[in-house]
Design a protein around this nucleic acid. Structure first.
Lengths: 343, 343
DNA sequence: CTGCATCAGGACAGCGCTACCTTAGTGCCT
DNA sequence: AGGCACTAAGGTAGCGCTGTCCTGATGCAG
């Protein structure tokens, strides 16, 4: 009533639309769309005109409209079990660096090491019609698996390896990392070797398994020296478990920790309690977090290619999203034993 | 031609739509929409019917269609300067915990302490028509400021405080945190107090300023004992700067570090070099990261309410997005000095 | 000079949802 | 009993973009 010819339609966003760009450039909206997307064949001259018009109007596509019209989003979902672990931050950063420049949006989900929470995240993110999923490991609920399968959305698994047909994964063998740890400690002449793992995700268990197997092969396996707890991995917990283990088994002379946090905690408690590292006990960590090389004594650890895994996983995803097959679907990025003072 | 009545339109997503839910429930699509959103007045009986139908079909709204139709997304953008710093992880988690249950999607942007990168992120995320911005601090480019202003999108600033009119912020006074640090060290009878800061974001500078002011007031300020570097904060850097400072000024008897990483690095180097903490030098950190209380000696630090800041900021955002004014737009969450062995 | 293949560009419709307006139905006051 | 306000539900249209045709122009062989 107040303004009969109200052209300020409240339902519009107020931002310039493709139509306006097309009008300014003197072409049809479809041509403008094609020009901006760089698809199909549009005369170079027109492309330039459209780009100039878009720049002039400060035009940015409306992702919602694009997703609706094409039934395809430009987002890739990454699900990680934790953010408080610096481990995954490096991987996420690398993924961002690869996907963002290509116009993809990265949606991050943290499932807190809970299979149910991961299933929930998957279900919710499905609504966004993501173009791809970057998932951590292979341990998930049956429903999660079915959802992924049914969705037909490309998926790359990170951190672990699985040579099953049709699986795209980038990681390293957690099992042989555990073996390497054992071999290193054995090569140092240690006789009573222990494994301390927390959180007990699939990867921690696999590393423990590799460690155990190598010890069994060397005839040095003792199940009493395997400390596993589902509690969340932390520096404090590492110190606690370390002291407990030494109290129960004073003859232990080497410990492989499933995680650097735990190992760092052990080093600190050793300092506090006058336990000589590595003389009395050799300590080996896992992941090689930035702080480890600064510990007293400097912590030996197995360095994992977190950044490289993220990068390659994202690159595989780009290939898959382009509709192509990945040449090497199972990519072993290896790991590197960093020998320092603690062993 | 091959199939005259092809109902498998390739442009559809294949997922159930609101129409199908409505049909199954025996109501109109609009009623179904309203029932699922819980808006307007829909008979309880119908709401139940619709919800049952949605559940049966495993229906999830199409966010793209919703955003397009309502010219409003359900996403909130959070921009943080770093993810490798555990500091912001706690804040992000808290934000997630508040916004996700309310149906909002959290988009995380990391601007790596770069004003230009933040400006870019802002520009890109504007395209998503976010419902709100949660930003870190007040130090940004003029264009960023203008963009935010022009967009008319509600904005809550985290970590710092500013009582300017119309500003919503949740944080604490970085300045008085610096003052508190100085007062604590002075109360321990220390005479030669130093400040070591890295990264040099606005907050680190403000803490340094507070520290300096308190020292000046006590007549103990010496500009030579202020070590500032734009290099990225890290454990290694902390140790390095610590040793350098002590070599240049052997009489220093207390150091306030702008960051716990730096302080932790200093503690480790002190151990390695036989420097007695706190006897020779008292060391005070900032942020109270989880590891600090486990250091040898246990690190005194200023605990910052990272989780609470995220929670309150998100809650303010909910209020703003609902179109309401926030009762207390400037929320000081305080900080807590944790006195441990290192001071 | 005609006929056909090729290609650039455009018309049209529709993705799935919600804002807006309208209609049908209810109760209550005069 | 009639009229009115009010509420519940539906009809209609359109958000901004792109997939699928289709048209008209161009080039080249016969």
């Amino acid at each position: 009533m107040t303004s009969p010819k109200n052209d300020k339609n409240t339902r519009t966003t107020g931002r310039p639309t493709l139509n306006e760009v097309a009008r300014l450039a003197g072409v049809s909206p479809i041509t403008a769309s094609r020009a901006l997307r760089g698809v199909s064949t549009v005369a170079t001259e027109l492309v330039e005109k459209v780009q100039k018009a878009a720049l002039e109007l400060n035009y940015v596509v409306n992702p919602a409209a694009r997703a609706l019209a094409s039934a395809q989003s430009h987002s890739v979902v990454v699900l990680v079990p934790s953010l408080s672990n610096l481990l995954f931050i490096d991987t996420l950063e690398a993924i961002h660096r690869v996907l963002t420049p290509k116009g993809f949006e990265v949606l991050i989900g943290n499932f807190h090491y809970s299979r149910d929470e991961e299933e929930n995240l998957l279900r919710n993110y499905m609504a966004y019609q993501p173009r791809g999923f970057l998932l951590t490991g292979f341990d998930r609920t049956e429903s999660s698996r079915r959802m992924i399968e049914a969705s037909n959305i490309p998926c790359v698994y990170m951190m672990e390896l699985d040579s099953a047909a049709g699986v795209n994964c980038v990681g390293f063998s957690q099992l042989s990392a555990g073996e390497t740890a054992a071999e290193h400690l054995l090569s140092r002449g240690r006789k009573r070797l222990a494994y301390i793992g927390a959180q007990l995700d699939q990867r921690t268990l696999l590393r423990g398994e590799g460690f155990r197997k190598a010890l069994q092969k060397a005839g040095r396996y003792d199940p009493d020296l395997e400390v596993l707890t589902p509690r969340a991995s932390s520096v404090g917990l590492g110190g606690e478990l370390f002291l407990q283990l030494l109290a129960a088994h004073p003859d232990v002379d080497a410990i492989f920790f499933g995680n650097d946090d735990l190992a760092q905690g052990a080093l600190l408690e050793a300092l506090r309690n006058g336990i000589k590292i590595p003389e009395q006990v050799a300590i080996l960590g896992f992941n090689d977090l930035p702080m480890s090389e600064h510990m007293v004594p400097r912590l030996s650890s197995i360095n994992t290619p977190r950044e490289a895994i993220g990068r390659r996983a994202a690159e595989q995803m780009l290939t898959l999203m382009a509709g192509n097959k990945v040449a090497r679907p199972v990519e072993d990025m290896g790991f590197e034993l960093k020998v320092r003072e603690s062993t």
